[in-house]
Amino acid sequence: MVLLFLIGFLAQVSPLVLFFVFFKRINKIVELRVIFLYVLASLIFDFLLGAFKSHSSLIISISAMVEFAFFSAFFYLVILSKKFKPSIIIISGLALCAEIILLYFDKENFDFWVALITAIIIVTYSISYFYEQLNSPETLIIYQSYTFWIVVGCIIYLSGTLFLFLYTSDLKNKESSPWWVINISFEIVKNVFFSIAFIIARKIKQKQEERTFVDSF
């Protein structure tokens, strides 16, 4: 378990380290900045979770909402359809409002609803993203795009942890439950995919820089 936590921590730190290592090349990519901020926020929440164990439920709930907000922002940036972009703002805005209301009125079932809402909405966004990419003439090979790896990381993490969060209210001592291994494992997978995305983004930027030249007129 300790080893898993250690791997989890390393996996969580790796996208941050990679972002700083490739900072010059990838810091202008807004989507990656969003993911960097999301990973940073997750790390902060994990520290808070360790520091304030008595408020763990509240911290997990808030972190779930922040996670949803970051994922929505990411999909807002990567989905190019002008028709779909306003829908992302409206749907995610309404979902966030609903989650805040639920946090205030129904703390017992909050995790269930947040997990359900997040999973449904983000999976819908992911499918829209895949559909758009498959129909885009600019997409040559989908897995050569860094956004693809981030989206894959998001949906694998959300689908893998969906049932855990749906039944979280039935589990005693959430973060100490053996079932929490699922969450850590999928967080590792997600962070590995994010790290791959950062590496691919750097390679793409490098190729673009090699192709550009200045006319000496």
Binding site: F130, I155, S159, G160, T161, L162, F163, W179
Partner: peptide
């Protein structure tokens, strides 16, 4: 039981979707 098999099923579905897309 539900948690275990639900997670497996969701994961299989997601991986299936990604593999299908690729």
């Amino acid at each position: 039981m539900v948690l275990f098999f639900g997670t497996i099923a969701m994961l299989a579905l997601t991986i299936g979707l990604i593999v299908f897309i690729i």
